[in-house]
Design a protein around this nucleic acid. Structure first.
Lengths: 240, 240
DNA sequence: AAGCGGCGTAACAAATAGGTCATAAAAACG
DNA sequence: CGTTTTTATGACCTATTTGTTACGCCGCTT
């Protein structure tokens, strides 16, 4: 799975340099030099990470950063600020506004890549290839294999992506809408209830025990909120 | 909830500088200048983040980093590398070994704090936002979970929103009308008495003890005014 | 061309949450 | 004290939300 990066920068030579290096490393790059457009693209393209220059047209980078953080759809989007302004106060301001990392020009493309990878490793583990694991469920994203307690689990493509998304954010509750965005894709129009059906299929596949028995369900339904992958420690009726 | 930071550094003046600044910012600090000891402390103290100098006794910082990543217990521990070695190759090596961020000396303590916060914001949302707590009641809003004294509390959607509102404004009294506005929504028309019923349900859920006993009621009824979340243990007749 | 697997939708069943009412209990008042 | 307000509580019915199954429609493989 290739990661998509939104590059917000208006210096042509820098665009070229960074784009070249990112693409060489296997990233998809979307570019703009305009602050307003950056916000639009962040919503529509659903990049995995944004590289944000401080000095851009229409809206300053810091303002773009602030608005990205404020909008629910992009509140968790990783942001790496990148700018010529090197003084400490700016860096701190950038970080406090919600940037995940901050680099000052001139910078080394290789270091930029390394920092991007470091951020993505945290935020989108599946993008780095390798394995995801939670409560006995293991997923090898490159081999497209899933096991539960060492037993292979057979999943369809959609269930696979759904489970991957849960594994990337264990414990967190996602609304049907968020799941459709993240798993199905931005501009797909399907019924929200479709999510239920795939949750059902995922549960069925993952909770199937060795002898046809049911294993503990790790997908938690949160009424009126959505679903989450969750190791439910204390079974429902403790004190009841 | 205070975050605990493990500082691995052997320069006395730097230890002092960093410790002072971290503690001023509300972090708990555990220190060592020894690589082997760092590994032990990382397991035993369960810090929320490690600041790791490259040049330390016994094991290099990079080796400590590598081992921390390899051990399951600390594989996800956030690491900020900190060192005098400024050249690019080292920074990249640090980041690729699994460090989440990398700063070179000399550095600004404020920037270090800002970077630490940026990392923790990602890794431990509970330390920053998303988590509410009051008098033993803890709510994780992203996981949609509530506990009282570490025991899970089961709430319906409305009770959840109601409790969240109280946790967001502990101690403050809200009239039924205000609660309807804040929890139900502005333009919902329901009886004010409905609030009583949900308060009752919330109390029942939150005050249920481990063995079916009643825990102290943290929701205070303020006659002819409303309700508030309040740690009023026993004083029957305070000053009223 | 036929068969298959996967997907999205609809429809019905089940579960759970929400709101109101009636009545008991408690507190304030004179 | 008796009366009046205000709140607590349990029960009930309804509305909403979710679970589950069945079905038809592609797109691909054979």
């Amino acid at each position: 799975m290739r990661a998509k990066i939104l590059l917000v920068e208006d210096d042509a030579s820098l665009i070229e340099l960074v784009t070249y290096n990112l693409e060489k490393e296997g990233f998809d790059v979307v570019r703009t030099g305009d602050g307003e457009e950056a916000l639009t693209l962040a919503e529509e393209e659903k990049p995995d990470l944004v590289i944000l220059d401080w000095m851009i047209a229409n809206l300053s980078g810091i303002e773009v950063c602030r608005r990205l953080r404020r909008a629910p759809a992009t509140a968790n989007l990783p942001i790496v600020m990148l700018t010529a302004r090197g003084d400490e106060a700016d860096r701190i301001r950038g970080l406090e506004t919600g940037a995940d990392d901050y680099m000052t020009k001139p910078f080394s493309p290789r270091e930029l890549i390394a920092r991007i990878r470091a951020v993505l490793r945290r935020l989108r583990p599946a993008l780095q290839g390798g394995a995801l694991e939670f409560a006995g469920i293991a997923m090898d994203t490159t081999a497209h294999r899933v096991t539960r307690d060492a037993r292979t689990v057979q999943l369809g493509p959609t269930e696979f992506r759904l489970l991957r998304h849960f594994l990337e954010h264990p414990g967190r509750v996602f609304s049907r809408e968020q799941l459709l965005d993240a798993v199905w894709g931005r501009d797909v129009y399907v019924e929200q209830r479709t999510v239920d059906v795939h949750i059902r299929r995922l549960r069925k596949a993952v909770n199937a025990g060795p002898t046809g028995e049911e294993l503990p369900d790790l997908i938690r339904t949160v009424r009126s909120a959505g679903y989450s992958l969750d190791a439910t420690p204390a079974p429902a009726q403790a004190a009841a």
